[in-house]
Design a binder for these strands. Structure first.
Lengths: 199, 199
DNA sequence: AATCATAACGGACAGCTGTCCGCATGTCAA
DNA sequence: TTGACATGCGGACAGCTGTCCGTTATGATT
């Protein structure tokens, strides 16, 4: 079979779906747009959309792919800076909170679909989660090994840290409680990072 | 109108619905039972169920009412103990984690329906959340005032603490990562309570 | 007894997700 | 050219949530 023509067709279709979704999301808000609507607008069947993306969260994930990649590159850059582990930890948390701030709608949808429903917590298996958890763990481990931080269960601690900065509570603090992004970043460092370190 | 007879009828109906739901939940698991099914089994219309409980989470909340009450009484008891604030904090967290362990299925459903969907974060307005948050805040405030703990944003810290012990991450740690309830309680105290305190 | 007002009921309905299957289209082999 | 076969499309469909409205029942009024 001629890979070229076939591939091009399906790839074009995929691009069309992504494009359509992005436009609709922008116009009406992620929450308000249904998968049916996306298929309709793109002029394809629902099956065609679902065959590519298992659900709206999946689709959002695909749309965010570039951004996640950049975030991870930025994280790697922070890890290469010649500053203390503690500072790296703070910088990474800050970067991730800023990322959350910038893309809440998408992240909320990803979070919802991967968490709620009986999707069996596959959120925790996702690459971005694993990546962040790995990075936090490593930093905590190094800190403990260097006797800069108290001895703690680093794996557990990293999970808890990520859990505490989730889109739901973040939106609540921002919108209902009127916290600023800055306050959240600083308070987090103050309550959950600094206390782990000696001195 | 004669309040008595009318009231009895509707109360009996309510009791019937709750009873039916409880039975079905026990038999097939909360997740697997639909509101339609509950109505069907109770021999009433869907509207009748929804008029009483806005959704499944609401219904679970009603079924858990007694338990929540007991949990809060227990919390009050802990607060009356002649031990340090730090110890009270640990005991309360322990009690709440045990509560979560004992009723995960229900709490997960409550969490899902009040968090996901565009239910506008009404979870944070619920009485159990407000209660726990208030208690944690008070304890942290007292600790800081007594110079036993570092100066921190107590309101923020309490929200983060609750966010970190949510049913999703809890189930993940218990089931996938094989943590024991005990380990979770101890690690939490070690990473997020002890470090806040001097000495 | 007849009429009326009101509250609560039931289930039809709309809208969504996710699945499934019959069908079209294009490729390869003979 | 033709038949076999795979790929992937479309949309019908099942199942769920939550809403809405016509109907019914019950007590109040005359």
């Amino acid at each position: 079979m001629d890979e070229k023509t076939k591939r091009l067709d399906t790839d074009e279709r995929t691009a069309l779906i992504l494009q359509t979704a992005e436009t609709l999301f922008e116009a009406h808000g992620v929450e308000q747009v249904s998968m049916h609507q996306i298929a309709q607008s793109a002029g394809v069947g629902q099956g065609t959309v679902y065959r590519r993306y298992a659900n709206k969260g999946d689709l959002c994930m695909a749309l965010m792919h570039r951004q996640f990649h950049k975030l991870q590159q930025h994280t790697a850059m922070i890890l290469a800076q010649p500053v203390s582990f503690r500072q790296q930890l703070k910088d990474i948390v800050k970067a991730h909170i800023h990322f959350l701030e910038s893309h809440v709608a998408f992240i909320e949808t990803i979070h919802d679909t991967a968490m709620c429903a009986e999707k069996k917590q596959l959120f925790y298996e996702s690459q971005p989660y694993q990546f962040l958890h790995g990075v936090l763990c490593t930093l905590l481990n190094k800190s403990v090994a260097a006797k800069q931080a108290r001895p703690i269960q680093t794996d557990f601690t990293a999970h808890m840290m990520i859990a505490s900065i989730n889109p739901k509570v973040y939106l609540y603090l921002r919108k209902k409680k009127q916290y600023s992004e800055r306050e959240i970043v600083d308070s987090f460092a103050q309550s959950f990072i600094d206390p782990l370190y000696y001195k």
